[in-house]
Design a protein around this nucleic acid. Structure first.
Lengths: 239, 239
DNA sequence: TCCGACCTCGCTATTTCTGGGGAGTTAATA
DNA sequence: TATTAACTCCCCAGAAATAGCGAGGTCGGA
């Protein structure tokens, strides 16, 4: 453990960080402090765009992007379904493609142990903060138990910084939907057809169409399915 | 500040808590420790149901529920749009109904200063952890700056407990989709039409239709929109 | 070895959705 | 008071999705 460097200090530094370099620097310091191989912050926004920074080898990051591994990565899939920090061992690594992915990750130098903290934002934004290492299970369990609190905090801080540097992703002032639009979107999301929705809401199908279209417009969606998907992932409706 | 009680200790206690009483007890201890008037954890689930615990006067909680104040409460509205902890002063308190609500809250004994931490879950779940007090702005700012980290952690812990006590909200196991089905659902969710999806995947539109239909069948959905909505809220696809 | 699950392609007909117009009322807010 | 936003209704034509029949190939596991 590096002397004279505490999490508190690095967090304080991170709080002041105003360049990408200083963030990367903070990551490196934290990696040293925790003595882990990798530490990564990864962001996926509601438009499917990704970005992140950390200590994964560049080759792996490139490969991951190229192969669109986000589609099969069980860390993404697993964390997306969960509230709380999750140990990679708890994830579902079955399936041929997944095992191949895992083997490849190891080849690229990714440790076998991992701990990822999911964070969600208002418009379906989703971020992951991951620490990654190679060691035996017992050691890793001790590590995650000892450091869970700090890691959660660090995840928050990185997330805050990520928003500062990507302001366009945060305020995406998705104008809220009107009550009727929410009704319409919600009923569509649970499988009603237009006719059923109109009947349920006791309005004409034409009127309903106006709502769907205005919702589509507000959400910047190209069709009903898209609009419902966006409303869902932005948390404007719930099913 | 109460001697011999640290946040660490209360968190450790909270971690072991297995009854609602012990959680309520932890809240009271934390309130003493932080020397604030109120401390509340509040949950809104995907069906619009609410529940929570804390130190707000029962009369206010009842009134709030009865009047459905969740609709106009700027704390809810504001936090719902934000990633990070927010000081109540930063919220939008304009509007007649909102000011009336605020005045009434003060009458019921709610402090004028507040700090709320939003937390989100996988299926549109949304929780708020709030501390509330009466003091001047400078004092409150110092308080929130000094204790932000602890409060974030406490929010996480309460949230974890909330999930333990409401296991039905945990992620459900559902039938997984095949890779091609996932591709299809994902592209539909980001707004592609059938023709565009087919072209993107380099398959005939007919083949695509087979995927959509089999996905629909697996998901028990009545149409494409429904299928995409289900795939999204089950975390089978990520947009 | 066989079964099931996955991937790929074709046809026709019907239903549903989308996109282009326009118009009037109420309620709240500035 | 004036303006804005939300809610409600109507027509039409073309585009897209759904429903029903099919067929054949590959690959891994029982």
């Amino acid at each position: 453990m590096v002397a004279n460097t505490t999490v508190e200090e690095v967090l304080a530094e991170l709080e002041q960080a105003d360049t990408l370099e200083s963030i990367q620097d903070a990551i490196l310091k934290l990696r040293e402090y925790f003595e882990v191989e990798n530490m990564v912050y990864h962001w996926v926004d509601s438009a499917g765009e990704q970005y992140g920074y950390g200590t994964y080898p560049l080759e792996w990051a490139t490969r991951y992007q190229e192969q669109n591994y986000i589609r099969i990565d069980p860390v993404i899939a697993g964390c997306y379904k969960r509230f709380h920090p999750v140990d990679w061992k708890k994830l579902d690594w079955s399936g041929k493609a997944v095992r191949a992915f895992q083997a490849e990750a190891v080849e690229y130098g990714i440790g076998t142990q991992g701990y990822s903290i999911p964070i969600r934002g208002p418009n379906g934004q989703f971020a992951l903060f991951t620490v990654n290492h190679t060691c035996d299970d017992a050691e890793w369990e001790k590590f995650t138990e000892d450091n869970r609190r700090e890691l959660i905090l660090i995840a928050h801080y990185f997330n805050q910084k990520a928003l500062e540097f990507e302001p366009n992703r945060a305020p995406e002032q998705s104008q809220s939907l009107s009550p009727r639009e929410i009704d319409a979107m919600t009923l569509l999301a649970i499988g009603y057809s237009r006719a059923q929705v109109a009947e349920t809401l006791s309005i004409s199908e034409h009127t309903l169409r106006v709502y769907i279209e205005s919702a589509r417009f507000k959400l910047g969606a190209s069709n009903t399915t898209h609009a419902v998907a966006r409303a869902l992932s932005r948390g404007l409706i719930v099913v």
